[in-house]
């Protein structure tokens, strides 16, 4: 490698002369900033508003029921059918939904990572067994499994978390497995093995750090999908159960009053959109996906439902 190759901005072109890279389009993270703002706004509201003295999602002011937003100074986002402050309800629902979603993603990523690493690093029969399990659950749509179990034992938020934990780990496991497989034969993983490291040691020090990074990336882009999924389940009554509020539940409750008080459904819907779109913008960068050039091969896109 010559010295010129090592100067990052002066990569040689085919003609042999170095042309400064300033000619390339600089990446404007405008979309990412917008996404981050959307995301932060919702998170701040959900976790910050409850800290304010005005926060009161429980008290019913029946005389003020179904007040529209902006009418009453004490209830800037209006009230629901029982006169409860909608802003407070929304914030609380945000805490509940986000809390559950983060819990689900954490559980799934840890579970998937463990299974994937074990499968990839140990290989052989264990690998076949675990990946066989993965294939089995791929066949059935999650919602039907949830419906079946909910019909049998009754719907509850724990059932939803459990079903999602039992099915969603597969995406993480596959990635963890392929990374582990790739790393397993690398020289820097063989070196400690030769020097007496146990499997645990090697995995912990050399494989887990690399895999974790991939899991994190996957998890961040997964959160949006899980929010949509759990909100749908909540809406159908298969997830969070009343009286605990969640975004999906609020929309479901608001549906009954869609004629008199459409804002009851619209507000939570907008909030969901802000979070999911914000996450999407921040983690996937629209532009890199949207222009497949003629020369490049088509990239695999992250489809939300593809891992089910």
């Amino acid at each position: 490698m010559t010295a010129i190759d090592q100067i990052p901005d002066l990569a040689p072109t085919a003609a042999g002369t170095a042309i400064p890279r300033a000619r390339r389009m600089p990446r404007i993270p405008a979309l990412q900033i917008i996404g981050a703002v959307m995301l932060v706004a919702v998170v701040l509201f959900s976790f910050g508003y409850p800290l304010l003295p005005a926060f009161d999602p429980y008290t019913q002011h029946l005389s003020l029921a179904l007040t529209a937003p902006g009418v009453d100074a004490h209830h800037l986002l209006g009230t629901d059918s029982l006169g409860r402050d909608e802003a407070s309800r929304l914030a609380l629902a945000g805490r509940v939904t986000l809390g559950i979603v983060v819990a689900i993603v954490v559980v799934n990523s840890l579970l998937g990572m463990s299974i994937g690493i074990v499968s990839g690093y140990l290989g052989g029969k264990i690998d076949n067994l675990l990946m066989g399990l993965a294939d089995v659950q791929l066949a059935m749509p999650v919602i039907l499994v949830l419906i079946a179990l909910a019909a049998a034992v009754g719907p509850s938020v724990w059932l939803m978390i459990g079903v999602l934990a039992a099915t969603y780990w597969v995406g993480y496991a596959r990635v963890a497995r392929s990374v582990s497989l790739g790393l397993r034969e690398r020289d820097f993983v063989l070196a400690p093995r030769i020097q007496g490291a146990s499997g645990f040691w090697t995995v912990r020090r050399h494989i887990v750090p690399n895999v974790s990074v991939q899991m994190l990336i996957l998890a961040v882009s997964d959160i949006g999908a899980v929010i949509l999924l759990t909100s749908s389940f909540d809406f159908l009554g298969l997830g969070v159960q009343a009286p605990m509020p969640s975004w999906g539940l609020l929309i479901s409750e608001g549906q009954k009053y869609v004629r008199q008080a459409p804002y009851l459904s619209i507000l939570p819907g907008i909030v969901i959109f802000l979070v999911v779109a914000g996450l999407h913008l921040v983690s996937q960068r629209f532009t890199s996906e949207s222009t497949p050039s003629r020369k490049r091969s088509p990239r695999t896109t992250q489809k939300k439902g593809a891992r089910r």
Binding site: P192, Q195, G196, A197, R205
Partner: peptide
């Protein structure tokens, strides 16, 4: 370089 020492 420390790794083999730590293992042992």
């Amino acid at each position: 370089v420390a790794e083999p020492l730590r293992i042992a």
